[in-house]
Amino acid sequence: MPVLDVRAFNRVRPAFGGAVLLALAVVAGTAPPDQAAPAYRCSRSVQTIDDAGYSGPWPDDWEMTVRVCAARSGPTLRTYAEARWDGPAYQALDDPTILDGARLRVQIRQRDGAVVASQDSSGIESRMEDSNGQGGHNGTFRTPTLSHRAAPGAHADAVLLLDWHGDGRGYSSYQYGSSPVV
């Protein structure tokens, strides 16, 4: 907190000086109130996704849980998505050939379903290809927060886009449920 230098006020008449010093002390000690963080409301959905690039005898399903959260601050809707997965155990550790690409897209939709803003996050690919010391692929990824003006009744949703290595089909999309309306 800054120190208030009152030397200049020593010349103020005593009848008025005390009130000025008190007022300055109150103003100097008062900071603007912190704006409260918006209260996020979230929904969660789960899908079991097959690794389309693998057709061997071992289990290859990924259980993907995506939580979509949204909050309103005046006319602005803020949203993010967080993915958690329980993937299979592959022989190779930290295998960069599981996916050719992966993105987690978060979208803001108006009440009528029209997308007014979207943001893709590609950092999920390397996280999904990382493993623990036994080859298990479990982890989490959170998108940056997307902010956009949206009318009342708007909500957010997420789409997981995966391009499995070796399947030749390009990106497959997996739609995840929407946040509560905010």
Rank of each mutant, 00 (worst) to 15 (best):
E82A: 13
R84E: 08
D94T: 04
A92D: 14
Y90F: 14
D100C: 02
A71W: 07
A70F: 04
V66E: 09
R78Y: 11
A71C: 10
A71H: 04
G87E: 06
I98S: 01
A81T: 11
A89P: 00
V68D: 05
S73N: 12
D86N: 12
S73P: 05
A70C: 08
V66Y: 01
D95E: 15
L99V: 14
P75A: 13
V68I: 14
R67P: 00
D100T: 05
D94L: 13
A71M: 10
T97L: 14
R67E: 15
W85A: 08
Y90S: 00
R72P: 00
T76A: 12
V66R: 06
R84I: 15
V66P: 03
A71D: 09
I98N: 01
C69I: 05
V68C: 04
R78F: 06
R84S: 11
V66F: 00
D94C: 12
Q91T: 09
T97A: 10
R67Y: 01
A70I: 13
T79Y: 08
A92L: 15
S73Q: 14
A71K: 03
T97H: 05
D86I: 07
D95L: 10
P96R: 08
R78D: 12
G87C: 09
Q91E: 14
D86G: 06
Y80H: 13
A92R: 13
T97N: 13
A81V: 08
A81R: 05
P88N: 08
P75V: 15
A89Y: 02
A71L: 09
L93D: 10
I98C: 06
A92K: 11
P96N: 05
Q91C: 02
L99S: 06
E82R: 07
A81N: 09
